[in-house]
């Protein structure tokens, strides 16, 4: 094993089997990300499969950045939900804020304009100082990111139960709208297709943030907290919408 990855031994074996050789360090890094809990939803996939995804009004189904439904008169609405449980459990402000950053990106990626956020938050007992700390800063992270890009958090729910004490749940959702004929789908499948990666400058602190979601949280997880979260992407948001 040359690279440090968060995949299980069984998954690593599967990677070697599919490729027929030992992947190099870059390949390990890429597979580690794409097969992470965050990107592939490997543990929740069987549950997600139970949800309805087909219908007359479904314009873009599962597999893309966000789901799109026809809302009539030439308009479509798109939706995205994301969990940011693990990052929020060790760094509530940056953890929840980057959750908003991720889902607003998924709305923009379809060419849509983001208009609102929702959140569903679950913490341990409100009597516990740890949960109070998480509650305060998770809410602040969601609110601040929305304020920065000018998109309001319009509704949400919060629950306190001691079963969430060591593993808070931070779910955020976003929605936007787009003309049906202006939907953009980002895929480059044929050789020669051009891939353009757009975004704000970022620090090294995000490296391995995605694969962190695959790990099991324990008392040492705090050591994984990034030193300098840089999450303000408001200028990128504006640049994506110079319409």
């Amino acid at each position: 094993m040359t690279a440090q990855v968060d995949l299980t031994a069984e998954e690593q074996k599967q990677v070697r089997q599919i490729l027929g050789r030992e992947p190099n360090e870059v390949e390990w890094g890429m597979i580690d990300i794409m097969w992470s809990e965050h990107c592939s939803y490997k543990s929740s996939r069987p549950h997600l499969a139970k949800l309805p995804t087909k219908g007359e009004r479904v314009l873009v189904g599962p597999g893309y950045d966000s789901g799109v439904v026809d809302i009539g008169k030439g308009w479509a609405a798109n939706f995205k939900v994301e969990t940011h449980n693990h990052p929020s459990a060790i760094e509530p402000y940056g953890g929840s804020a980057t959750g908003i950053g991720g889902i607003v990106r998924d709305i923009l990626a379809l060419g849509a304009y983001p208009v609102g956020f929702l959140d569903s938050l679950h913490f341990g007992s409100l009597n516990s100082p740890h949960s109070q700390w998480l509650f305060r800063y998770v809410v602040k992270g969601v609110a601040d990111y929305g304020n920065c890009i000018g998109v309001p958090t319009v509704a949400g729910e919060v629950q306190f139960d001691k079963s969430f004490e060591k593993n808070c749940l931070v779910n955020v959702a976003s929605f936007g709208f787009v003309r049906k004929d202006k939907i953009v789908q980002g895929y480059a499948k044929a050789p020669g297709d051009v891939l353009i990666l757009a975004g704000g400058s970022t620090g090294r602190d995000g490296v391995h943030g995605v694969t962190f979601a695959s790990r099991t949280l324990d008392e040492n997880s705090e050591m994984d907290r990034p030193k300098s979260p840089r999450w303000r992407q408001s200028s990128t948001n504006t640049n994506c919408h110079t319409r």
Binding site: C148, I149, G150, S234, S235, N237, T238, N239, T242
Partner: peptide, 9 residues
């Protein structure tokens, strides 16, 4: 005037 990050424009 729109600057990068303007959001009430």
């Amino acid at each position: 005037i729109r600057f990068p990050g303007s959001n009430c424009d």
